[in-house]
């Protein structure tokens, strides 16, 4: 058996003065405050991403829903690879239509200054917003490819790549417009976005997208998107040079 007597002797040598309940409560309150100050940044990234997700406008989700509905309506009737590609070239530009106004939202509603003075830089905010909306588009394209692939016994990876062609081009154009065109009116932005969407839908008439050169076009579109992202990163680096906040 352990001999704890020396330990008890030791602690009883320093008797603790009994404190009043209000003093105890005060100490507990101070400790809670201190703890909350120390832990207030724990889980901040998740909260940031969640709030960016929640701030995506309803119009964007409505468009995604309409596009998905369009896919469901055409699902059984679209059988040939060529027709699926045409469907992709129609639905995907519509799906990405609202990305540009969503990214410009901060400027339209004069939130720029407050956001730029916050902990998460405008670049991080933009990157997260872009990732969220693109991921949603990507997910829908993925579902469409998977469903077509399984149902019509087609190569799913090929379908996914074909679906990503208009997506990549659309994202690249969105970033380029975002970087180089200063738009302050939401109506002007919607017009530009509508014009881009209509232009992208016209890709349906490009036969090279429908035949065997699609893989080359796919890699070309990936390069274009990477180039646009590169330009955006450089632009933000320049902005960082001009101000601390970015």
């Amino acid at each position: 058996m352990k001999d704890n007597q020396s330990f008890y002797d030791f602690i009883s040598a320093y008797p603790i003065v009994k404190a009043k309940d209000c003093v105890k409560q005060d100490t507990i309150k101070k400790a809670v405050e201190l703890l909350s100050q120390q832990t207030k940044y724990v889980g901040a990234k998740q909260n940031f991403v969640l709030n960016q997700f929640k701030s995506i406008s309803k119009v964007f989700w409505f468009i995604q829903f309409i596009c998905f509905l369009l896919f469901l309506v055409n699902f059984t009737t679209t059988q040939r690879l060529k027709d699926i590609q045409i469907l992709f070239l129609t639905i995907v530009p519509v799906m990405t239509f609202y990305i540009l106004p969503e990214l410009f939202k901060t400027q339209f509603y004069n939130m720029e200054e407050i956001e730029a003075a916050c902990f998460f830089s405008p670049f991080k905010t933009l990157a997260v917003k872009m990732t969220l909306v693109s991921s949603c588009n990507f997910l829908i394209i993925g579902i469409m490819s998977l469903a077509f692939g399984i149902y019509h016994q087609l190569d799913i990876l090929e379908l996914l790549c074909r679906g990503l062609i208009p997506f990549n081009i659309s994202i690249a154009l969105t970033i380029i417009v975002f970087d180089f065109i200063k738009v302050t009116s939401p109506y002007a932005m919607l017009s530009i976005s509508a014009f881009l969407t209509l232009a992208l839908i016209q890709m349906r008439n490009f036969s090279f997208l429908l035949d065997n050169t699609w893989l080359g076009v796919y890699f070309g579109s990936v390069l274009l998107m990477l180039l646009a992202i590169g330009i955006m990163v450089i632009q933000f680096k320049h902005m960082e040079e001009r101000c601390y906040g970015a």
């Binding site: 909260n47 960016q52 509603y109």
Partner: peptide, 30 residues
């Protein structure tokens, strides 16, 4: 700022939550 903006659909609570997230605060604390 002199003229601070807000998204039109934001309520007072939602606006505060949004700014708190940008300020890097977690949910419980905010």
């Amino acid at each position: 700022p002199q003229n601070f903006g807000y998204y039109p659909n934001f309520t007072v609570q939602r606006y505060m939550e949004y700014i708190a997230s940008l300020k890097g605060l977690n949910r419980n604390f905010s």
